[in-house]
Computed example of a mutant assay.
Amino acid sequence: MPVPVRTVMSPARYVQGKDAITRLGEFVAPIGSRPLVVSDDVVWSLVEEAVGTSFAAESLRVERVPFGRFATPAAIDELAESIRSSDADVVVAIGGGSAVDAAKAAGHATGIRWVSVPTVASTDAPTSALAVVYTDEGEFIEYRFFPRNPDLVLIDTQLVANAPVQFLVAGIGDALATWIEARASAKAAATTMAGGLATQAGTALAELSWRIIHENAFSALDAVRDGIVTPALESLVEANTLLSGLGFESGGLAAAHAIHNGLTAAPQTHGLTHGQKVNIGSLTQLVLEGAPRAEIEDFVEFTTRVGLPNTLTEIGLSTDDIEELEAVAAAATVESETIHSMPFPVTAADVVAALTSIERLSRSIRADKGLPEPVKYEAAH
């Protein structure tokens, strides 16, 4: 049996700032001379001029292939073939988390380097050495792990400010789970996504992400509604992307993300963002832990005010959907899932009970605090 070690993983370089996309070529050139860009048509229409100019300044070619909605096995294989046929030595993913994950997987499969250029701060996927693979319908299939992180993560905060605010809200939902899961993982002495026990650095970064989110979320969301970059937005983007990314990978995942993965088995949740489903997982984990009532109340109030779901109603389910809840719980508790990093055993029946409980729990807290009653969220676009 291998000797247990503590380990931390991180991208080789992280770059963040207003109009950072205009310097992409400068940071890509030391990594590769034959880049292949992967992005969808909408994203490319927003960044083509800036990317082209910055690449030209470094004598880099501009060659792009389009990308669909999910990082499916077929999409990854297709991108890998494009990499081979174009003789690329670095793949540059510009867009959302699935494009980034597909580039990691295809880059690893073809033996080249990879770069993450998220255009929204909606997940912590860009910094990590893993990809989440889905079906065409958005149902979770597996995690794929790689021996290294991206060589570069570059995020332009003006692009984040220009994007719909719902994407930043989703990033908050994803990032809030980081500290909740990292502290549980540390208590259990569980193996993290980095392949060892959590480091103090990984756990501390997870907690720092939580604190920065609470200090800056509302001001940052207002900045995005106005399409401007402010210090609060810069802080929140770093918390959502870098701190949460390092925190989840080297601090540990637990129940929240496993429940997210389980929720993808319910067709009613298809079309919701990753962060919306993760937020349901976070609250469910707090219930499973028997967290203090005051902590749960604070979580429900904060996430309601941010605009994240914390009831089944908001994600298209109800307490009467027993078949769906059992399917979610079964998927969340398969042997390979991170729910087994909790410091106590969790069964599918435990998950069903906890998921069922959050409806009445959240409604009660929201009523006590004068917050709106839950309504079903529309699918993100």
Rank of each mutant, 00 (worst) to 15 (best):
E337F: 07
D156I: 02
P73N: 06
T110N: 06
A367K: 11
S357L: 03
L286W: 03
P2M: 06
S39H: 09
A182P: 07
T7H: 09
A170I: 01
A29Q: 09
L60T: 03
V15W: 11
G370S: 05
F146C: 11
G68D: 14
S82R: 15
D77M: 13
P2D: 07
A232D: 15
G95I: 04
T284H: 02
E378P: 01
D40N: 15
I315L: 10
E139L: 00
I172T: 04
L159D: 03
S10F: 15
H260S: 10
W44F: 15
G227Q: 04
R144C: 04
T269K: 07
V37M: 04
G138F: 01
V334S: 14
R366K: 14
Y134H: 13
E323K: 12
A184V: 00
V352L: 08
Q285N: 10
V100W: 03
Q285F: 08
L154Y: 11
E378T: 09
T22M: 12
A332G: 01
I180R: 08
H274Q: 09
E249W: 12
L197I: 04
A232R: 04
D136N: 14
L197D: 11
G196F: 10
W44I: 02
E181D: 14
F67R: 05
E142A: 14
A291F: 07
T157E: 01
V92L: 06
A99G: 13
L288H: 00
V8P: 00
A330M: 09
F146R: 08
A50C: 01
A380H: 12
A29K: 14
S219V: 01
W179D: 11
T313K: 08
N216G: 04
S98Q: 14
G370E: 03
R84M: 07
L236W: 08
M9Q: 14
G196M: 06
R211N: 04
A105V: 00
D156H: 01
V153C: 13
A367M: 02
R360A: 15
T119Q: 05
V15D: 13
A349V: 06
P66W: 08
F70N: 12
N261T: 03
E249G: 12
A223V: 03
D226K: 14
A223R: 08
S364W: 01
T230H: 13
A57C: 05
T123R: 12
R23W: 06
E49M: 10
R360T: 10
F27G: 03
V62C: 12
T127R: 09
G68K: 12
P267M: 04
D89S: 02
F302A: 08
S39V: 01
R113E: 15
I259Y: 11
T123N: 13
N216F: 02
R13W: 06
A266E: 08
Q166D: 12
K187A: 15
A56M: 02
I259M: 13
F67G: 08
L308R: 06
E297C: 01
